[in-house]
């Protein structure tokens, strides 16, 4: 259970994604573009970002670069894209710990990855706190 920000400009994909993630027990905040997503992240509390790449006013790549760079946050990011150059995108964001998935997204694989990442994160935090 986490607060997940979904940045997606296509309304119906956004609704589907939000519906699916809520069913999986997460809290979902929605941003129709990268600019709004930044504002929501700055407002605080976002634990996970699921973002599209092609969006108006600041695309997914810029958003992630801002998130990792200027905002210096290491929350997990899953990027979904219908673009053909996914390998290059993956390479470009290689050092940014972003996993890139093709669209249409496979719901169970998406939630599976979110759960796994969150579980790993909890373990790591547990270890570093214990140490």
């Amino acid at each position: 259970m986490a607060k997940i920000l979904v940045a997606e400009d296509d309304a119906h994909v956004m609704r589907l994604m939000a519906m699916w993630l809520k069913r999986s027990g997460h809290e979902v905040v929605e941003a129709p573009n990268g600019q709004d997503a930044k504002a929501l992240i700055e407002a605080g509390g976002v634990q996970f970002l699921v973002t599209d790449i092609n969006m108006p006013h600041c695309d997914g790549i810029e958003l992630v670069q801002w998130l990792r760079g200027e905002f210096a946050s290491d929350i997990p990011v899953i990027m979904l894209s219908a673009r053909c150059d996914q390998a290059q995108i993956g390479e470009k964001l290689n050092s940014q710990r972003v996993s890139v998935h093709p669209k249409p997204f496979s719901p169970s694989r998406l939630s599976n990855e979110i759960e796994t990442t969150l579980a790993e994160l909890t373990t790591v935090q547990g270890i570093s706190e214990a140490g």
Binding site: L16, M19, W20, P104, F105, S106, P107, S108, R109
Partner: peptide, 11 residues
């Protein structure tokens, strides 16, 4: 969602 899921598994 089902269709997306099935497509995902075929891939």
């Amino acid at each position: 969602l089902r269709a997306y899921e099935q497509l995902g598994i075929v891939f």
